[in-house]
């Protein structure tokens, strides 16, 4: 078992987080199995909050299931479905249940989900929510001014997409999130390393590089269907033509391995960049492949945890 995300980041060790899908039925066992398989391999697992605006088990419940399985969760919380009362209540609830990390996002618009008729809330935006979470923790106050005793202690995370226009202002937006209180940030999937390097340089130039831990988002594209889905249906993901060509250029049965290889090459390239504190793996249902991605890439070598501890209890 690793010491958790906060300890890894504060010791400047290479961090690995991974996203797990949440069940669409009322079954805890599948999720328990998925997070348990990652135990010892990652510092924390991201528990998604109704990703793509499709109803799934709540991230608060998912985070508790991860905690019970002995795996540290990063509880995602979006502004899409909750007003400021519900957001603060869920943050307090998470803190009360001992959830050590929260990741605060705007959220996909309901238009893209399974309930396009739903009312979109967006009472706060992700930056205001980040600001609010740090105010709750560090100032010990609610937005109403009311004191919290004791205040929550969670680590506050945010997201950024270095590839969405206006690209020249994305680093400034990250700086704004850091000013609001983000302590770590996970990025959108990276396929275009040079553009990401420019983003990192901008972040350094703005002087916020040493005030936030950047976890670079990566994931394997294991089928042409997944490629098309990412290109068409996931807002904000940009896949360069050469990578699409590379995946289309191999025989159908080799696409999965080619996608994994491409992902490993990306991790290797990212791990060497100054300002990258770790990686955030988004494997889209291929969570069982995450240990392999870590082992075969530079991430494995950079992890200081002894291998005996790492692989030990990963099987059950």
């Amino acid at each position: 078992m690793t010491e958790g995300l906060r300890a890894t980041l504060s010791a400047h060790r290479f961090a690995v987080t991974a996203e797990v899908g949440l069940p669409h039925g009322a079954d805890p066992d599948g999720l328990t199995a998925r997070v348990t398989a990652l135990k010892g391999w990652v510092d924390a697992v991201n528990i998604i909050d109704n990703a793509s605006a499709k109803v799934a088990v709540s991230s608060l419940a998912g985070a508790v299931i991860a905690l019970r399985a002995g795996v540290e969760p990063v509880m995602q919380l979006t502004c899409r479905d909750r007003n400021r009362i519900a957001l603060q209540s869920d943050l307090l609830g998470a803190a009360t249940l001992g959830i050590p990390n929260v990741l605060l996002l705007t959220g996909d618009h309901p238009r893209f989900g399974d309930h396009p008729q739903a009312k979109a809330v967006f009472d706060l935006d992700s930056i205001q929510l980040t600001w609010l979470a740090r105010t709750m923790r560090d100032d010990g106050r609610l937005l109403s001014g009311r004191r919290l005793d004791p205040p929550p202690r969670f680590l506050v995370g945010a997201v950024e997409n270095p590839f969405a226009p206006p690209i020249d202002l994305r680093a400034a937006r990250l700086a704004k999130k850091v000013a609001a209180g983000a302590e770590f940030v996970q990025t959108q999937l990276i396929f275009d390393v040079p553009t990401f390097e420019r983003f990192l340089r901008d972040v350094r130039d703005l002087g916020v590089a040493d005030r936030v831990a950047i976890l670079a988002g990566v994931g394997p594209v294991r089928s042409l269907r997944a490629l098309e889905f990412l290109q068409r249906s996931v807002p904000g993901v940009h896949i360069p033509d050469e990578i699409a060509k590379r995946l289309r250029g191999v025989t159908p049965e080799r696409v999965a391995e080619e996608g994994v290889r491409q992902c490993i090459e990306t991790i290797d390239a990212l791990a060497g960049l100054p300002g990258v504190a770790g990686i955030h793996l988004m494997a889209f249902g291929f969570e069982r492949g995450i240990p392999e991605l870590i082992q075969r890439s530079a991430a494995g070598a950079l992890r200081s945890t002894p291998s005996s501890e790492r692989g030990g209890d990963g099987a059950h």
Binding site: T106, G107, F122, D125, I127, K176
Partner: peptide, 30 residues
Amino acid sequence: CPKQLRNGPCGGVGAGGECEVYPDRPCVWV
């Protein structure tokens, strides 16, 4: 903005600067 974001654009802006919810319109933050 369909998400009424007051602090800048979301991460879903299209490659051409278009709104993710109304792709026929430019993102107001762009």
